[in-house]
Amino acid sequence: MDYGRPRLGTSSCLLGEPVRHNGNHSRARFLTDALAPFVDWVTICPEVEIGLGTPRESLRLERSDDGPRLMTRRTRQDLTSAMTALAAHRAASLDVDGYVFKAKSPSCGIHGIPLYAGDCAVSRNNRGLFAGAVIEAHPLLPVEDEGRLNDAVLREAFTERVFAHARLRAFTREPWRPRDLVTFHSRHKMQLLAHSPEGFRELGRLVARAGILDPTELIDAYCAAFRAAMAAKVSVGRNVNVLHHCLGMVSDLLDPARRADLAGVIAAYQRREVPLSVPLTLLRHHARGEAATYVEGQTYFAPYPEQLALRNHVTA
């Protein structure tokens, strides 16, 4: 299967560049060891890009009547305007399929960044200035920080969305005909259904009008609906629903014993006794063995390179 090659934005320090305020890096092994062979990096260190050296004075967000200010802790330099301008420029030209930000950073953090008034943190639910601008400009872009990617479920979900965005980007940048969109959509049906039944139906209605709508209007609407559907969280119940859909498509090709075996494995996943990879592997095996090419070709079974093996640890 052609997975596409995602362009993945990330804070430079997460790839081992010594650009932290203390002159060190924050290498994230999942990025440098697991993902690196399969993606193209777009690295950004906002602090360095606005002219700060390494090492440098540490920063923090401070409360003001005009919103959070990005301040140096010791010399009290206000870097808000410089960071805001850089963020707007970078966000406007950003061409990536996902972004991994540096956790706990007042510029790049996306969760739980403290906002200070004097020496006291008055809230801890803020985003860094740079990350906030990127997310506001690209609300459907898959984003995470390296800390949350230590969670197996979040890591798998983020990676799945990144590769889906990459396939969509690759598709839309080549000349296409209505039947090409039908083929692209058909490969993603089960994956979309697992994320959002409502989005799945909306996309089906759009594709049904592929020969009627203006091509530019159609592809813009399809891309927006596709990304919105993929942003919806997958659940065990939705996975079970899709697994039974796939079982139904190969059921007539199997003898009663194999049908019962597959149904039993799906039930075991539903009880969280086995990871998602077990029913997926078994279903795909039977689809391949019985030449059920429509089922075997679904991106749901292999949404990213199999070497990543991320579903081996997903039971929820």
Rank of each mutant, 00 (worst) to 15 (best):
M1C: 07
S11C: 14
S12T: 11
E17H: 14
E17N: 08
A28I: 00
A36Q: 11
P37H: 10
E49L: 14
E57H: 10
S64A: 10
A82V: 04
A85H: 11
G98I: 07
Y99I: 07
V100T: 06
I113Y: 01
L115C: 09
Y116R: 07
S123E: 12
N125I: 02
F130W: 12
A133F: 00
A133M: 12
L141P: 02
E144Y: 05
A152Y: 02
V153F: 10
L154T: 12
L154C: 01
E156T: 05
E156K: 09
A157N: 11
T159W: 07
T159R: 03
A166W: 02
Q191E: 15
A194P: 02
L203H: 03
L206M: 08
V207F: 05
A210E: 07
L218T: 04
I219G: 06
D220Q: 14
C223H: 00
A231R: 12
A232W: 00
V236E: 04
N239T: 04
C246S: 09
D255C: 05
P256E: 13
P256T: 10
P256I: 05
R258W: 03
A260I: 00
L262H: 03
G264L: 04
A268I: 02
A268G: 02
E273R: 13
P279W: 05
P279M: 11
P279C: 10
L283K: 06
H285E: 14
G297M: 03
G297C: 07
A302W: 04
Y304V: 06
H313T: 14
V314L: 08
